[in-house]
Design a protein around this nucleic acid. Sequence first.
DNA 1: CCCTCGTTTTATGTATACAATTCATCCTGA
DNA 2: TCAGGATGAATTGTATACATAAAACGAGGG
Lengths: 223, 223
Amino acid sequence: MPKQTPTRADFLRRTLEEDIFNGRLKPGDRLDEQSLAQRFNVSRTPVREALRQLSASGLIEVRPRQGAVVSVITLPRLIEMFEVMAELEGMCARLAARRMTEAERQSISDVVTEAEGFAEQVDLDSYYINNWKFHDAIYSGSHNHVLEEMTRSLHHRTAPYRRHQLNRPGRVHESLAEHKKVVEALLAGDAEAAGKAMYRHVNVQGDVFADFLSTLPTGYLKG
Amino acid sequence: MPKQTPTRADFLRRTLEEDIFNGRLKPGDRLDEQSLAQRFNVSRTPVREALRQLSASGLIEVRPRQGAVVSVITLPRLIEMFEVMAELEGMCARLAARRMTEAERQSISDVVTEAEGFAEQVDLDSYYINNWKFHDAIYSGSHNHVLEEMTRSLHHRTAPYRRHQLNRPGRVHESLAEHKKVVEALLAGDAEAAGKAMYRHVNVQGDVFADFLSTLPTGYLKG
DNA sequence: CCCTCGTTTTATGTATACAATTCATCCTGA
DNA sequence: TCAGGATGAATTGTATACATAAAACGAGGG
């Protein structure tokens, strides 16, 4: 029977992903193979494999013979990402409204209840994690693994950019209200309403998008 | 100034991709690192890197210490893929109807005109390539690189399965008729109609889906 | 005859050494 | 002073050797 021993490369990939999601690694940061090898006490080989995997998922960029950096995207590209995310997350919500089990509905309902506390105390870090849980619950609630993985992947790629979004005063309460709308439709089994609510929640446009951009640290956008 | 020398690993990845798309490598086929290294006269290192990249795109599966095989998917997973593909390609068509340049509209129109000849002569190989061009034109016509890449990736992953679809008598003419409907809406600038036509073209269901399954060689489905 | 356990074999995972290219520096010359 | 190019250093790409885990095989017992 196979033991399924995790490889060092997999561990490295997961660790670096975490670093990017948590902001310890920022867009534009260079990923030096030797430094990483020393930091983790491994050779360059597993480091390279981890970098390749991250590159394939779009989280970092590797240009031949020029090393790897955490992906820095352009503003038009960021807009494109939100355009697609809104569509994908909307589809997730639509399917979730029809397919979620009773346990799953209870679970996402609990997530939103938990969020109310964090929003009240303006505990941004906790709300950030809760927000992640909320979206994840809808991805898996779609009961379509392919859709789930694609949406999650895009969510990951935009994570370094959405991270600062909550710093804007009032954004947390807006976000929570939108989450509630989605869950309401979800529990009612109204697929169209859930899809539209989710679409609007993700597809920040106009003034809201300008506000969002204003939260981005310098160097996060290229071009 | 960087020369941008392509690496061996990149060449290997592209070659192996081609092999999978063309059916030279079939789902379930084992990818032995040593054999590949010998075949291409390189060491195992670039072979491994190519395999990791292919794994990240979903075209092959690498399980730790158990080697790599061309992805074999289950029937439920295949259904999921078509469900998502229909949505994504529908979105591409919707955007393309609004955003395509005049040159792009002319180009896709030419593609369909070319297809009529292949359908008449029942030249399946040529039609297969033409069909690829048609879909590609709509992906890029969306003018959303993120959407384009995601849709193309999923298209690639399903390529080994859609390849045999045209073998069914009459399918070529059906396909062509559907393409024409899409282009018609596209040229008219009717986004909703284009999206729906594309959705229906991709989202094969019911009897048509059963017919499609019947074209699959044995061993292409798992479970 | 089949199942189980231990050994052998083979392939993958990792480390290290070497090659090739890119980038930085410095020198030369206009 | 600045442009251009050559030279050196540093980093990535590749090859090879070794470590280790999983598969294959065979012997022994039930």
